[in-house]
Nucleic acid binder design. Structure first.
Lengths: 159, 159
DNA sequence: TATTCGCTGGGCAATATGCGCAGCAGAACA
DNA sequence: TGTTCTGCTGCGCATATTGCCCAGCGAATA
């Protein structure tokens, strides 16, 4: 479950040079090829590494606007709302949360005007009582995981 | 900029079988190897595909708790706050959003109790006036991009 | 009509992969 | 103290893939 320092270095290396081969990775890390192979297998069957899916930029696809919407759901309609939102391609992720509002979702749109269409599509569903939207202006820290990986691997093996 | 249907199929294929080679991809798509190579190069230099970084699961690293925090920032302290949050490994992403100079960030923690430590760390900074946190309970739609890719490629080439 | 562009299909040397193997050091354990 | 695991090493081999070249060809374009 926990990762050691070699795992951490391997993940960082993979993040930096994603299309690197096992052999080259073993050279960079200074370990045997079989070791890298075994570590990668373990990390993947552990679920630490879910996959190596291509990291697609919505903006480059023509969806440069990102927003977060907090949704208030009618009692007992949760499952229907989830199913509805799953069918909307512009809904990139959906969470159920504590506190004010019941769900939080990340939306993308082709423009600010187009965002209105997306929101209408999202909230145009019976179970949704109210939606409150915040448009993203800047993204000073894009989604990242490497610092956490380094922290986790340092926790395990301080050397 | 826009992607055609072949690009879409290629991205979907890469998403489904990430460690696939160029040759195998060309066989699956029924096109020449050079074509796949050229498309991949183009998608990457376009910025449509940012990379193939390993998709690491924070939960498997020992951080199963996710939360979103909305921050209220003291006027003119934005840059300092951004720099501060960038140093906190548990801050996985940070956005500035519309409203009153506010920010939205995604946090992870080792437990609900540990989340308190993270929040203290986040808000224990001069420029932050107030923080409101929503803990994620379920994640019905994990971060995804494939439906949007399919939509974008269908827009371009309906056939 | 001439040109450009993207795709095809082939060939080539160099490289990487998947796989198996034995040896070895350290840790756990009786 | 001796035994058993476990993980890493370093090696070899057959096969598959890569990176790079080329000429031809059809469609769109000037």
């Amino acid at each position: 479950m926990a990762i050691d320092h070699l795992d951490g270095r391997l993940i960082v290396l993979l993040a930096r040079e994603p299309r690197i081969g096992v052999l080259e990775a073993s050279r960079r890390l200074g370990v045997a090829r079989g070791t890298v192979q075994a570590r990668m297998d373990r990390l993947q069957s552990n679920g630490v590494i879910r996959g190596f899916g291509p990291d697609v930029d919505p903006a480059a696809l023509g969806y440069p606007v990102t927003a977060f919407a907090t949704l208030e759901i009618k009692q007992g309609q949760g499952a229907d709302v989830r199913a509805h939102l799953a069918t909307v391609a512009e809904v990139l992720e959906l969470h159920t949360i504590t506190g004010h509002g019941d769900m939080l979702c990340r939306l993308v749109a082709r423009s600010n005007a187009d965002l209105q269409r997306v929101i209408d599509r999202v909230v145009g569903f019976d179970g949704i009582v109210r939606a409150s939207t915040a448009i993203v202006m800047e993204n000073p820290v894009p989604l990242r995981i490497i610092p956490l990986v380094e922290q986790a691997s340092d926790d395990t093996e301080p050397g």
